[in-house]
Amino acid sequence: MLAVQIVIAILFILGIYTILNRKNVIKIIMGINIMEASLILFLIQLSYKDGGTAPILDKEYELIVDPLPQALALTAIVIGASTTAVMLFLAIKLYKEYGTLDISEIRRLRG
């Protein structure tokens, strides 16, 4: 259990590292997605039980994993995907407006 959780933590801080240290807007968006993926992994880890099967009860099973976090994960994925779409769209727009995707140069608004 802890091993997966360490992976989650690593993914999470990897995402943050990407956001903080990569200049490219697309990479920053990828960083956000990595963070999101880590949270979804956390949800899946939460529902996981040793030897359990997927919650589709077409016949009798002994042990079934928790279906609720999976449903939550689905919702989280959809929300994340929509936000990512908007972000990518903005990246395109920004590239047209500023001629660059370097985040350290996209800063006309300040002060």
Binding site: I16, I19, L20, N21, I28, I103, S104, I106, R107, R108, L109, R110, G111
Partner: peptide
Amino acid sequence: LSQWHNGNLQRYILWIL
């Protein structure tokens, strides 16, 4: 204070963290 807000997104995220 105003100069610190130099418009850099990564700096702002650093503050959040």
